[in-house]
Design a protein around this nucleic acid. Sequence first.
RNA 1: GGAGAGGUGGCAGAGCGGUUUAAUGCGCGGGCUUGCUAAGCCCGUGAAGUUUUAGGACUUCCGCUGGUUCAAAUCCAGUCCUCUCCGCCA
Length: 425
Amino acid sequence: MIDMKLFRDNPEYLIEACKLKRVNIDINAGVQLYTKRLDIISELEQLQARRNAASKEVGQKKKAGEDATEVMEEVRTIAGRVKELEDNRKEVEDSLQQLVLSIPNHPAADVPEGDGENENVEIDRWGEAPKFSFEPKPHWELCEELDMIDFKRGVKLSGSGFILYKGLGARLERALYTFFLDLHTTEHGYTEWLPPLMVNRDSMIGTGQLPKMENDMYCCDKGDDLFLIPTAEVPVTNIHRDEFLPREDLPLYYTAYSACFRREAGAAGKDTRGLLRVHEFNKVEMVKFVEPETSYDELEKLRANAETCLQRLGLHYRTLKLCSGDLSFSAAKCYDFEAYAPGVDKYLEVSSCSNFEDFQARRANIRYKDADNKTRFVHTLNSSGLALPRTMVAIIESNQQEDGSIIIPEVLRPYMGGLDRISRK
RNA sequence: GGAGAGGUGGCAGAGCGGUUUAAUGCGCGGGCUUGCUAAGCCCGUGAAGUUUUAGGACUUCCGCUGGUUCAAAUCCAGUCCUCUCCGCCA
């Protein structure tokens, strides 16, 4: 249940959040609903108090053998009015709930204000773009030539945006997510999970995909009301939904590999060639549950963990700090990492690294007791580490040779049976 | 899919229409006493909300949603989940 207090405490804050995130919502309507709700509750509680007392009185009178009809009649009258008020209350709370769920998180103070991706700020670059003595090819050509991906049959099976990996292509995919998982579990201190790929509605609301993004989610609605996860963030963050976390367990570091499913509604035709934008892809995700005071330090550590993935693979990349208008619905602050792919000559987003503060914890009701034994919401964070298709693009295009072969990054070779290059047959 | 059993506080587990103000135990917190690989005793101990200068007061919550009743943890219906057995099946 969302914290309704938001309305009373600081509507201006919510209005500002909507403005910065470029979301159009009438907060004042919510404030009115909130006030109305308080009035209803106030009358309701007085009546309930009287009813409880009177009911007890009936019991006592009956036990003493006295006549209780008068009190019984009073309770009956009260019960009618109570029913009426409860109906009103439910109606008001449903509307309010709907509104509260559609308010985005407020951006952190150091997030630049801006409209969209053009106003994101590049804050760092690592490595250098590879140089070629020949014209580098795009990955879709290389993958076809090296028999790594069967694009045509993938389309036959499921439609555009579904990838059929083959041979060493499939092996490289497996090598990549295995490498990431090993890195996070052995060097970065994360616990590995393997979650369900379908989750219920409560889970989708908990992390903030619903209600806003319902159109972008694959839904299995043959009476099941289940959704295919768009990221492992959803099941992994919801592991602790409706739970109290022992303070001594914090911070919790979780990682999970999963397939991810996105309808990408409205994105057709835009940078969709090859592996650039697909409906189903593999990803390794990192999720943290931390005490609020530490969450921005944890964000920097998380960021370093994600960057380690790119650095070990030897990929040139840049780091962006997202502006308010490009931040996701749930995020307070977010870094994007974009790997350079020379074949398409583009920087491709391979990871998003976000602090959600208590936004998801409020929706998913994830709490802990602080040092003063006060009940508080934890802060949640997550980062891809990494999303595979575009990482694959960057690896393939960056490591291509004039003869059309691809050099396999050293860290992946143990996962490729020692193979150091993928060549034409 | 069929049949049965069950879902109560951090945990275990009573209660099965009206002093339930949810027993009792464990755990946890505080205090006292005594010291010999320790224990004993006492007190306290769920969440959300409203209200009060304070102490406190009030409401809601016994899986969830409805219903019956003057009154529901307790009765009824639906639903979700767990367990046992049967069936089917990778």
